[in-house]
């Protein structure tokens, strides 16, 4: 009787448990990592105190935070330099990766001929190539950009190529039946179909581009020409300024996380209406 009168449907124990679990899971997804993180920081602080570790070896979290605030001008200036390289590198990787992928799908022969070169570029460690780049390229920014680009473009290229090629055969037939040109097939069919794959590649490339930029700065920074975050780290290392080293490190990590989150959001917004990956699961 109560089930009829009550607007809220009475749940059986199984469904009630399921609902409770879902609720807990939603909260836990945010809360748990935060608690663990806070615990780790607290432990870090205690270990410093208990063992009397000097600041130039392991600074306490509070000191790192203070340094982050005090050196903000210097650090954020450097972050800006690194960010510029990262985003320009990523933009070039998108243009290069998508452009090459489109070229590859226009002709199997082109793909067969050039894909191995892309793989070679990808598997050779960037640190090993850099001395060569250092010799051939004079401009400092161009050097770093080239590095970030080499590291970031491959996931975009390989993912987009895969996406452009995994089009429903029947849809291709439909386009042929309707006399579609190559350009129409690309624009109305292949590119939208490749979107989820491309966005997956972009998410990986965003992080890689940052890594590429930082690594390049490291190698270039050894000769004292760079002003990005990596050179701050090297400098701080030489001076045994561990707090600043940690502060710079944290900034790099945070940047990577933010890049990943932003690209995930972009991906979700672009696909939410139609792609399985962006849909809520229905029971």
């Amino acid at each position: 009787m109560t089930a009829v009168e009550n607007p809220v449907v009475a749940l059986d124990p199984e469904e009630a448990r399921r609902l409770r679990n879902a609720r807990l899971e939603r909260i836990g997804r945010w809360l748990l990592p935060l608690i663990i993180m806070a615990l780790a920081i607290f432990l870090w602080d205690r270990i410093c105190v208990w063992n009397g570790i000097p600041q130039y070896i392991l600074p306490r979290p509070g000191v790192v935070l203070k340094t982050l605030v005090n050196d903000a001008g210097l650090l954020f200036g450097s972050l800006l330099v690194t960010l510029k390289i990262t985003f320009l590198g990523l933009a070039l990787a998108v243009i290069g990766g998508v452009g090459l992928a489109v070229l590859f799908t226009q002709s199997k022969w082109v793909e067969m001929s050039f894909f191995p070169f892309a793989v070679v570029l990808q598997v050779t460690p960037i640190v090993a190539i850099f001395p060569l780049i250092n010799i051939y390229v004079d401009n400092q920014t161009a050097k770093l950009l080239l590095c970030a680009w080499i590291v970031a473009f491959f996931p975009i290229l390989s993912n987009t190529t895969l996406g452009l090629n995994s089009v429903d055969r029947n849809l291709l037939d439909l386009f042929r039946l309707n006399g579609a040109t190559r350009w129409q097939e690309l624009w109305h069919l292949r590119l939208p179909a490749a979107m989820p794959y491309f966005l997956g590649g972009l998410k990986i490339a965003g992080g890689l581009s940052l890594i590429g930029a930082v690594v390049a700065e490291f190698v270039a920074g050894a000769s004292g020409q760079s002003s990005g975050l990596a050179s701050r780290i090297i400098e701080a290392g030489y001076r045994l300024n561990a707090p600043r080293l940690f502060a710079a490190l944290i900034l790099i990590s945070l940047t990577g996380i933010v890049i990943f989150l932003v690209l995930s959001l972009v991906s979700h917004l672009a696909l939410r209406r139609w792609h399985e990956s962006a849909l809520k699961q229905e029971r």
Partner: peptide
């Protein structure tokens, strides 16, 4: 000629 496939074969986006 118009063609209707076994699957709906629509553009999902």
């Amino acid at each position: 000629v118009g063609f209707v496939f076994q699957e709906p074969t629509l553009l999902p986006w």
